[in-house]
């Protein structure tokens, strides 16, 4: 009798917990979708032309006409923040997608294959990890020239080893689990073992690292933009907008706060979504 009582309590707990994570998932994905929609339809949403300069309206404080104020060329900051969402979010997402896919593939290949190829590729990744990343990215971006796409390529060149290392570690720890042996004994081909048994069990940490990296990558892209190696000046991009407003922090703080808050909200949303996705993906935490 007592055992039954205990069992019914655990069942109830698991239901509550599951519902909560699902609700969180819906809320955060809805918010991220809203953010993405704003980015996609940015040119339809902007109240003013984000590139229209009007020096007569330079550095206006936020009011009912310009909700977030104007910058030193009199451009409406709300319009620029909305427009900047497009380049900032999409370039960061593209960058994280590139490095996580390439890094994970290399890591899985090395971890699963082992042997000499593994050692060689891992030594190469050691070289990348040992070199100061930003300096190398500046060098690559300098060779490729300015432009946001070149900045993405430059950062992708230096950031893949992190994911390769992570994925390789995951593969090495999972590779010797009995269920992989069981899959081999079931006659599964290596591709099936990798995609059905390995990847789903190692995606959690990679997904979380990837979402946490969106913020870091946004900042690094902004850094390159600041140096003139990323987004070119007239283009609205949160990072470069912040760099532009840096000198006016004391006189007109809204110029730096508007894109800063945008980055803060975006990064936090992606992080929360990443954490929730991990909770949902991992059936063991549903207990």
């Amino acid at each position: 009798m007592e055992m039954r009582l205990e069992k019914s309590i655990t069942v109830r707990k698991s239901k509550l917990h599951k519902d909560q994570t699902t609700i969180k998932l819906y809320v955060f994905s809805a918010l991220v979708v809203v953010l993405l929609l704003i980015a996609v339809f940015a040119s339809q949403l902007v109240p003013y032309d984000p590139y229209q300069q009007d020096l007569g309206k330079a550095l206006l404080a936020p009011d009912s006409n310009h909700l977030l104020g104007t910058d030193r060329y009199g451009r409406d900051l709300l319009s620029r923040v909305i427009m900047g969402a497009q380049s900032t979010i999409f370039s960061s997402l593209l960058l994280v997608a590139i490095i996580s896919v390439i890094g994970t593939s290399i890591g899985v290949f090395c971890g699963y294959k082992g042997g000499k190829i593994d050692s060689i590729i891992m030594r190469i990744s050691d070289v990348f990890l040992a070199f100061p990343g930003m300096v190398f990215a500046i060098a690559v971006a300098g060779v490729l020239g300015g432009g946001i796409m070149n900045a993405v390529v430059a950062l992708a060149c230096i950031s893949w080893p992190k994911f390769a290392r992570l994925a390789r570690g995951q593969v090495l720890s999972i590779k010797n689990m009995p269920y992989i042996s069981a899959a081999k004994l079931s006659g599964s081909k290596p591709a099936k073992i990798i995609f059905k048994h390995l990847l789903p069990n190692m995606m959690g940490p990679i997904l979380v690292t990837a979402t946490l990296d969106i913020g870091t990558m946004m900042m690094e892209l902004a850094g390159l933009s600041f140096l003139g190696l990323g987004a070119m000046p007239p283009i609205a991009e949160w990072g470069s907008m912040m760099s532009n407003g840096r000198s006016m922090l004391q006189t007109s703080p809204w110029v730096i706060l508007a894109p800063g808050c945008a980055i803060f909200i975006t990064v936090m949303l992606f992080n929360l979504l990443g954490d929730t996705v991990r909770d949902v993906l991992d059936p063991q935490t549903k207990k």
């Binding site: 069981a182 899959a183 048994h197 789903p200 069990n201």
Partner: peptide, 11 residues
């Protein structure tokens, strides 16, 4: 295998 839980893919 020896460990029943480990011999099944948890997902």
């Amino acid at each position: 295998f020896q460990m029943p839980l480990d011999s099944f893919n948890p997902r």
